[in-house]
Design a protein around this nucleic acid. Structure first.
Lengths: 353, 353
DNA sequence: TTGAAAGCGGTACCAG
DNA sequence: CTGGTACCGCTTTCAA
């Protein structure tokens, strides 16, 4: 009925002052039992819900932390978010997320939004970068944690993964299996100027003169991975092993292989990255590199929410070493054969299309 | 540097009043060009970001809509969210989400949170229900859209899927393929008192005396689907077809079959529900029921954001008819054979474990 | 076209 | 233990 139900109305009904109502709401100081009861009753009856905007305005604090990610659709990001939310809730904080879809304009917009909301802390877990970002953050005293981008600075700390080490493990493994012609599938953001990940792969390959690599990029989705694999298959000599920038794209890639009647790992090996749950459930299960999203989530919360700095944070940067996971999507390179290139699509499928 | 950068500071620097700064910020009324320029400059230099809390407090409005879902991890919910966000952004609204993890206590907490934030509209896309909900919502004049639960009421409208019809199509199809012993895999929330979905399956089966069904429930995740399938396989006579409450659990179920060396659809047929992207990318591709998440998302936005009621909303309730999608995970029931029950785990796997 | 001032709904400090 | 009151930062009349 009343779209404007406020402290005062409650106070009036409970025959106390607004200040007292505020007190019972924050169960602060000692409010007499009977008084508290009256207030509670009034709150119930009026279905009063405190205005959070007014609260954080008056209090100056926000009890919510912000999180910006590139693509919530990818479980990698979601898993981190999930952990952050769990930790935050345990400390009675809320977390509000924003997607950038790998667009740096969106990144800036999201940063602005978060600053506007006066979040108590901000986690930026994105692949793209925008120079104007630090500019934007300057002057706001919001504690920030960056994942995988940005440099430490006042009030901003960094978590990064030793992506290079992870890729090296993958490349070395494939090499040991006899693979020489490699493919790389990334998402569009790798087309950016200095893409760490792309470069890492190229470097790892360059370190071994026997190897060659061809890359394809598409959206960071199942469909994108599929398209990228299609591109790799459609031009030049097909690689015997394909390294995917993450598990989602790898699963997409696997499907495209299936459509062509190409079997993994018999005909082509495929690797993922991240070790999301899906990588165990797809077929064949993915050889991948584990990145501990839960640890990352915990680190973020520990850093952003006051009153619980765990010891792991000693400096302004933490580097995480990824772990290689061998599963079923990789195998020895087939010797002399390009046979799979001539198999017509769906030839090997025996079930109805 | 200043953690307290406000209108007044900007006004001071630009040598105008706070009111004027507010005007340029909202590009309202006619501010003289030169004045506007001065203000803009001051804003830039001071890196001023308006306090959104103060803004919605003073303005009384919020320009953000809330969305509550059961499980963002499940692409079904995510897809809806994505569409809502897209539409919202197009109308310069923000959307903030909350997860309930199928816990009705969380549902209530989330509703409270959203009311506290004075969202401009609220979408409740959850499977669980909580009687206290309507109570909670009463008196708040926030427009609400429910998906799949709740009854129309003042300011609250409904979107529902004719789940029954969808299940009937699945059951009929399986029946026509010769299946008689059915399995049903649902998530834990189906254990609730009157679960529509579970009941629907039982009804559909009851309608055909030749059919029998056994159910198993677990978490709404890949792992949950796997466990549920394990349970189904581990007790009594194995079903020849398993209906899963959604695609995610179906994919989990498929994996468990693989571990047992049971092939789908040769040995057991499996169906999903929702038709998420993954259902095309898993192996075998899932026979499922399509639920148009994008349409649901559009409907939600049209209803919640003022100034764009599309014609589709004629009453307080919209019912969506799902569409049956046959793919590769279903096939004819094998005649006389329980052979797969005796196949030892992984027997048929030829790749390394 | 611009400024002054009254809220918006709370919080928190100061008296009592 | 409780009430009064000065803000918090912005929007919005009302005058000038």
């Amino acid at each position: 009925m009343e779209q404007t139900m406020n402290l005062e109305e409650v106070a009036k009904r409970a025959k106390v002052s607004a200040a007292t109502v505020s007190r019972v709401l924050n169960n602060a100081s000692v409010v007499k039992g009977s008084t508290r009861a009256r207030v509670m009753k009034a709150i119930e009856e009026l279905r009063y819900h405190p205005n959070l905007h007014a609260r954080s305005l008056a209090g100056g604090k926000s009890r919510t932390i912000g999180m910006i990610v590139s693509n919530m659709e990818n479980p990698f990001f979601f898993d981190i978010y999930k952990t952050v939310e769990l930790d935050a809730h345990a400390r009675r904080f809320e977390v509000v997320v924003a997607n950038t879809d790998y667009r740096s304009e969106q990144l800036v917009a999201s940063i602005r939004l978060m600053i506007g909301r006066r979040v108590a802390g901000l986690a930026v877990v994105v692949s793209e970068m925008e120079p104007a970002l630090i500019e934007e953050l300057t002057g706001s005293d919001i504690p920030v944690v960056f994942y995988d981008v940005g440099a430490p600075r006042h009030n901003i700390t960094n978590i990064r993964v030793n992506y290079r080490r992870g890729v090296e493990k993958v490349v070395d493994y494939l090499h040991s299996l006899g693979h020489r012609r490699l493919g790389f599938i990334g998402h569009h953001s790798i087309l950016g100027p200095i893409n760490e990940r792309m470069k890492t792969v190229l470097d790892a390959v360059a370190a071994n003169p026997a190897l060659e690599v061809r890359a394809a990029a598409d959206a960071d989705t199942l469909e994108g991975g599929r398209q990228a694999m299609r591109a790799l298959l459609g031009s030049g000599e097909a690689p015997t092993a394909v390294i995917c920038v993450n598990d989602v794209m790898a699963v997409g890639a696997l499907r495209e292989l299936r459509e062509h009647g190409i079997q993994a790992p018999r005909d082509i090996s495929v690797t993922g990255f991240d070790n999301i749950k899906l990588s165990e459930f797809c077929y064949p299960a993915l050889t991948t590199v584990h990145i501990p999203r839960d640890r990352i989530g915990h680190l973020i919360c520990d850093r952003l929410i006051p009153g619980s700095d765990r010891p792991e944070w000693n400096g302004d940067e933490i580097v995480i070493d990824p772990e290689f996971m061998v599963r079923d999507s990789t195998g020895p390179a087939r010797q002399v054969q390009h046979a799979h290139r001539s198999v017509s699509p769906r030839l090997s499928r025996s079930w109805p299309g």
